[in-house]
Design a protein around this nucleic acid. Structure first.
Length: 825
RNA sequence: GCGGACGUGGCGGAACCGGUAGACGCGCCGGGUUUAGGUCCCGGUCCCUUCGGGGGUGGAGGUUCGAGUCCUCUCGUCCGCACCA
């Protein structure tokens, strides 16, 4: 595409200027009001893709805009540089992950620089830097000391493909690994955990105060999954030594319990299973425990018939409300991982229990009267509110009251207690991988798991490792790394070979950015309290749950263990913006799908400014965008717009236009200029970048016409200057160049333009006159027109008189100066 | 199944408080410049029309002087969670 200017040399020139002059470097003692703008730091996978371009264009716009607004803007960037791809590449090619990763970082960084995105690169943080590893390990040990990290044997999600443990969050709904797609199986392993559940209530409650997208908050709320209810202890008939504890959110329905169910993995299953029932129970357990998540999940719909999904244990438990003995089953629809792994089954008020009861011919007793006509309309379990029945002392109450009284009764009788249950699990951080932050622990035959003393940190992975496709971390075979001495007794010991989940790294990097120069602490307390919280955080929705929840947890935990100062706010991200995805043919544009359209070619053809403008213009930033065959034409359209801007401003700079007094037409142009300033400013404030660009386009069209039809030099100059200032955060290179050619100074050091409010209001406006809601006339009237005048002007119009055809108006609604509606019927 | 978001021209989208529906751009049509193509410039572009108008924001109702916008129902698309007791 032929351009009106040489975008390549201009973009190169300004990128060098911003770098060499340190335009966007900011010191911790900067006296201006602070603004912390942060884009989620990227995993370095090579040159930027369109998703990065979109993300970092938004972020860069915020940085440049807030800078022009006079703020000291902290704009750091780093790299989430630990992770599987580098390790897989190492196995494939024999290259050390560090070499591979550093090369990818260099590529990504270069393509972000070419986009014109500006950062204080002095603050760059990379997860695999020894200093970052050091502080990561210090944090781990402090959490351990405070009891917020612990080691436990737990059933974990094991991915046979990745040969590693996955967090629940990394297992997809169909039971496959989110990374490799392999079917995940369950195994028991000794693992390290972070006690995020200790913060469940706080993480839930303080969601309310965040200026975040509602859907992200909803997702976090659901993920924490707080539910209030009771634990009830059921005695097992004939086994006074055993108690089966169940969790329920409906203690009011206990009278309706007609059986009980335990998960197949429940530890008491063997104890309660009688000899004649053992075969059936074992068969069920064999199917379930050997099964992968995918098979088990599949049973919900496509699996074995319902009557194959449970087995009678041969034992009975006692309903504490009415002393009745009810059968105890094992069934796969009860999960060991939630609540107590056992339930009291109330088929009348729970649809899963209802279906199971039907399949096994178990009795159903309603304890809430369903609404009129319930059974006629299909019946089944009724989980709604209503009057309690068949429930002894609860009869006649509503559900809420009955819950309260049922719990009180159970507590009084010693049969149970009020509890709160969460869906949220503790965070499993162990990974059987090389390319991650080593867990600083040593195992001693005498002393057990011992912390590596802080003065011996960081524990770094050795560099002389061989990467073999064994599926096991090279750390586990590296004799030099593995064997050490116990810090406590000095005897021979072995190192922990697991590394930390990379979500640990991303849980505090925003704090490190405040003061990455500090060699004595992860960050300086004063610097952190100065810059935090992040005023604007920008990233993809895919991090709505994991990263954002872990970071919120970490910020609190770091304060509570004394690493972060007490006066640091407990919420790290004040405002969150989540951008839409770029899709192609319905699926996400990604490397793995092979449908990437590299930004680099556009840097050559139309330039970074045009590409940025395209990403801003094409639709609301929150919306997904479909990349189609038409897209290149839209990008070229953005290039054409910049060409028109160039020609317009250059001709104005050449001194086009007359002197002397302003005509009415000149004044109109001034008004348009100030209206544009007001509109674009408010568009940017409310993240409506697509309309901000549109308003600038409109203004270019207007000034072009104005210049052609005879302009006043000062009015044209004012219009052009405003346009350059408004476009500066969006298309930073070309506007800076045009500005320099006009004024000789640096556009990005200028303050944001202010509109003159006396010029924003139009002098005359088009007033619409409706008859019965239909537009019948448009009149040019003074913007200051009053209600009576407007009414009179409307009724005086011949076209309105004609439309009324003599009929008298019943009512006239006047909303001056925009509209008058004459009502006749 | 539960929770959330959203349905507007050929396309991406605009309409912020209930007040001119379709800004801006892409595409398309016509004209000018040009030997021609491209670029650039000008004009047109929701549908129907007997040129008076009439219809129109997924569909059906409702509130209102007035509804893309608010309410009820309904259909469809997308996203998240999903045997959570």
């Amino acid at each position: 595409m032929a351009r009106a200017y040489d975008h390549r040399s201009i973009e190169e020139k300004w990128q060098a200027r911003w770098r060499d002059e340190g335009t966007y470097e900011v010191d911790n003692d900067d006296p201006r009001a602070k603004f912390y703008a942060l884009c989620m730091y990227p995993y370095p996978s090579g040159p930027a893709h369109q998703g990065h371009v979109r993300n970092y264009t938004f972020g860069d716009l915020v940085v440049r805009y807030q800078t022009m607004r006079g703020r000291a803007v902290l704009s750091p960037l780093g790299f989430d540089s630990f992770g599987l791809p580098a390790e897989n590449a190492a196995i494939r090619t024999g290259t050390h992950p560090r070499i591979f990763t550093d090369a990818r970082i260099a590529e990504l960084k270069e393509s972000l620089v070419r986009l014109g995105a500006v950062y204080d690169w002095r603050r760059e943080v990379r997860s695999h830097d020894p200093s970052y590893i050091h502080w990561n390990q210090v944090i781990f040990l402090r959490l351990l000391k405070a009891g917020l990290a612990y080691r436990a044997s737990a059933p974990v999600n094991w991915c046979p493909g990745c040969q590693t443990v996955l967090a629940n969050e990394q297992v997809l709904a169909d039971g496959t690994c989110e990374r490799s797609g392999d079917v995940v199986v369950v195994r028991d392993l000794e693992q390290w955990f972070f006690r995020i559940t200790a913060y469940a209530d706080e993480l839930l409650d303080s969601l309310g105060e965040l200026d975040w997208p509602e859907r992200v908050k909803v997702m976090q709320r659901n993920w924490i999954g707080r539910s209030e209810g009771a634990e009830i202890n059921l005695s097992v008939v004939g086994r006074p030594d055993l108690t089966l504890t169940v969790f329920t959110t409906r203690p009011d329905t206990t009278f309706g319990m007609t059986y009980a169910v335990m998960a197949p993995e429940h530890p008491l299953v063997d104890e309660v299973t009688t000899e004649d029932c053992r075969a059936g129970v074992d068969e069920l357990r064999a199917r379930v425990t050997g099964a992968s998540e995918i098979e088990r999940t599949a049973t919900a719909e496509a699996g074995p018939a319902l009557d194959k999904r449970g087995a009678f244990t041969g034992s009975y438990v006692v309903n504490p409300m009415n002393e009745e003995q009810v059968p105890l089953y094992v069934a796969d629809y009860v999960l060991m991982g939630y609540g107590t792994g056992a339930i009291m089954a109330v088929p009348a008020e729970d649809k899963r229990d209802w279906a199971f009861a039907q399949a096994y011919g178990l009795p159903i007793v309603r304890t809430v009267a369903p609404p009129e006509g319930w059974d006629e309309q299909g019946g089944g379990a009724y989980a709604g509110d209503g009057v309690k029945i068949n429930s002894g002392f609860l009869d006649g109450l509503g559900v809420a009251d009955a819950k309260r009284q049922a719990i009180e009764h159970l507590e009084r009788m010693g049969h149970g207690r009020r509890t709160v249950n969460y869906r949220l699990r503790d965070w499993l951080v162990s990974r059987q991988r090389f390319w991650g932050c080593p867990i600083p622990i040593v195992y001693c035959p005498a002393d057990g798991a011992v912390s590596v003393p802080e003065d011996q940190l960081p524990v770094l992975a050795p560099t002389d490792v061989e990467f073999l496709p064994t599926g096991q971390s090279p750390l586990a075979h590296h004799e030099g790394f593995l064997h050490t001495t116990c810090p406590r007794c000095g005897g021979p010991a072995t190192r922990e070979t697991d590394t930390m989940d990379t979500f640990v790294d991303s849980s505090w990097y925003f704090l490190r950015f405040c003061d990455p120069f500090d060699a004595a602490a992860p960050f300086d307390a004063t610097a952190a309290t100065h810059w935090m919280p992040v005023d604007q955080y920008i990233g993809g929705v895919e991090h709505a749950i994991l990263h954002l929840m872990y970071a919120r947890f970490f910020t609190r935990a770091l304060i509570d263990v004394g690493i972060a100062p007490l006066d640091l706010g407990r919420e790290p991200f004040r405002r969150l913006f989540t951008q839409g995805m770029i899709r192609m043919g319905g699926s996400k544009m990604s490397k793995s799908k092979g449908n990437l359209i590299a930004p680099a070619r556009y840097y050559e053809t139309v330039g970074a400014d045009a590409l940025r403008l395209f990403h801003l213009f094409v639709g609301p930033p929150t919306d997904d965008f479909d990349w189609t065959e038409q897209t290149d034409e839209v990008i070229e359209g953005c290039g054409r717009f910049l060409d028109r801007l160039w020609r317009l401003v250059e001709s104005a700079s050449a001194g086009e236009g007359r002197d002397g007094d302003l005509s009415a037409a000149d004044l109109e142009v001034r008004r348009a200029t100030h209206r544009t300033i007001a509109q674009v400013t408010s568009d940017i404030e409310r993240w409506s970048y697509n309309t901000a660009v549109a308003h600038c386009m409109e203004q270019v069209n207007l000034l072009q016409r104005y210049a052609r039809e005879g302009s006043h030099a000062e009015v044209l100059a004012e219009g052009c200057d405003a346009l350059l200032l408004l476009l500066a955060p969006m298309a930073p290179h070309v506007t800076a160049e045009l500005w320099e050619r006009r004024h000789g100074d640096h556009l990005h050091a200028r303050p944001w333009p202010e509109h003159d409010s006396s010029l924003v209001l139009e002098e005359t406006v088009t007033m619409v006159v409706q008859v019965n809601g239909k537009v019948r006339e448009r009149l040019e009237v003074a913007a200051s027109i009053g209600e009576e005048e407007a009414r009179a002007a409307a009724l005086a119009s011949p076209r309105i008189q004609e439309a009324l055809s003599g009929g008298a108006p019943l009512r006239v609604v006047a909303r001056p100066p925009r509209l008058v509606n004459v009502v006749t019927a």
